[in-house]
Amino acid sequence: MPPLLFYLLAAITLGFGLMVVTARNPVSSALALASCFVGLAALFVSLDAYFIGTIQILVYAGAVMVLFLFIIMLLDIKAEEGKQPNLAAIVSGIVVAVLLVTQIMTVVSHTKLAEKSLQNTPLALVEAASKAEGAAKLPTIANDLKAGTLPDAKLIGFTLFNQYGFHIQVVGLLLLVGTVGVVVLSKREKTSGGAA
């Protein structure tokens, strides 16, 4: 990937991220967050994680942000106007953020691992066709690898259902519990004292 593209995508992600934090109106905050997630999904794609990039757009930029906008408009929240911003909180927020970024930059500049680039760690697709565990068990993965394409979704699916079958079921149960919890939480209580 050309370096210019990376900087452009990083600027989109961080710029809209900054807008989320600074915007006065929650609706513009939510729209900025959606754009930020699209930029992030592009960064995922640049890291050869096509499936993760796709579900980032589907789940975050699609479902989650629609839910946020829906709630903001349902509650009819106005922009904070005329209110004095909490100066102490803002200053401490900026200080903590700057300290954290400085620390991460120091750590990254001192580790050899961070020097790996997309050029000096290329994917070896054709060799992986004979070596990878998924390719040995599923011929469709091996065929894709031999053809020189990365069967990203197939490999993630293989890892998930081969190694993490139980975890998938736990996450499914979590989603069910979440759905039931939301229904219970949003139920109106009929009378005072009468538990729902």
Partner: peptide, 22 residues
């Protein structure tokens, strides 16, 4: 390099943290 991605990730995390505090 990987470092670039990690710094972008760290900056995004710090932005979110600043937002949660402020």
């Amino acid at each position: 390099t990987l470092g670039h991605y990690l710094v972008v990730s760290g900056m995004l995390f710090a932005l979110g943290l600043a937002g949660v505090i402020a």
